[in-house]
Amino acid sequence: MKNIFYILCLLVLVESCKSAKKITQTTAPVAKVETTDKMRIDARKWKEGIDFYAVGNESDWSVDIDQQNEIRFSTKDGDKLIFFKKDVNWLSDSEYSFTASDEAVEFSFNALEQDCSESIPAKQFAYSVTINVNLKGESKKTTYTGCGSFVSDYRLNGEWQLLQLGNEKALESDFYGKIPRFTFVMDELSFRGSGGCNLISGKVKMGFGKLSFDQLISTKMACKQGKEGELKQALDATRFYLLEDDKLTLKDENQQILLVFTKAE
Score class of each variant (00 low, 15 high):
K2D: 15
N3G: 11
N3A: 12
Y6P: 02
Y6I: 11
C9I: 12
L10H: 04
L11I: 15
V14M: 08
C17D: 05
C17H: 02
K18F: 14
S19A: 12
I23Y: 03
Q25D: 08
P29R: 01
K32G: 05
K32P: 01
E34F: 00
E34R: 07
K38H: 01
K38I: 00
D42T: 01
K45H: 00
D51Q: 05
F52C: 07
N57E: 10
E58G: 09
D60S: 13
D64P: 05
D66R: 06
D66A: 02
Q68D: 13
I71E: 11
I71C: 12
I71F: 12
F73D: 11
T75Q: 13
I82L: 14
F83N: 04
F83R: 11
F84W: 09
D87A: 03
W90P: 08
W90V: 07
S92P: 00
D93R: 06
S94L: 10
S94K: 00
E95R: 11
S97Y: 01
F98Y: 11
V105K: 00
V105H: 09
E106T: 15
S108Y: 05
S108M: 05
F109T: 05
F109R: 00
A111K: 01
L112I: 06
L112G: 08
E113D: 08
E113C: 11
C116A: 09
S117Q: 02
E118Q: 09
I120Q: 04
Q124Y: 03
Q124C: 05
F125W: 02
A126E: 04
T130Q: 15
L135V: 15
L135S: 14
L135G: 08
K136M: 06
G137I: 09
S139M: 11
K140R: 12
Y144C: 08
S149N: 02
V151Y: 02
V151C: 06
Y154D: 04
L156S: 02
N157G: 10
L163P: 00
L165M: 13
N167I: 11
L171N: 06
S173T: 15
S173I: 15
D174S: 12
D174Y: 09
F175E: 07
F175R: 08
Y176R: 13
P180I: 15
R181Q: 15
R181W: 11
F182E: 05
F184G: 06
M186S: 02
M186P: 01
E188N: 08
F191P: 04
G193P: 10
C197T: 07
N198M: 10
L199N: 15
L199K: 15
V204M: 09
K205I: 09
M206S: 01
M206V: 07
F208R: 01
G209M: 14
G209R: 14
K210Q: 11
K210Y: 12
F213D: 10
D214H: 12
D214M: 13
T219L: 10
T219K: 14
K220N: 14
C223R: 14
C223E: 14
K227E: 12
E228S: 09
E230L: 15
L235Y: 13
L235R: 01
T238I: 06
Y241V: 07
L243C: 03
L248F: 05
L248P: 08
L250G: 04
N254T: 13
N254H: 08
Q255C: 02
Q255D: 12
Q256E: 09
L258Y: 04
L258T: 07
T262W: 06
T262K: 09
K263C: 07
A264N: 15
E265P: 08
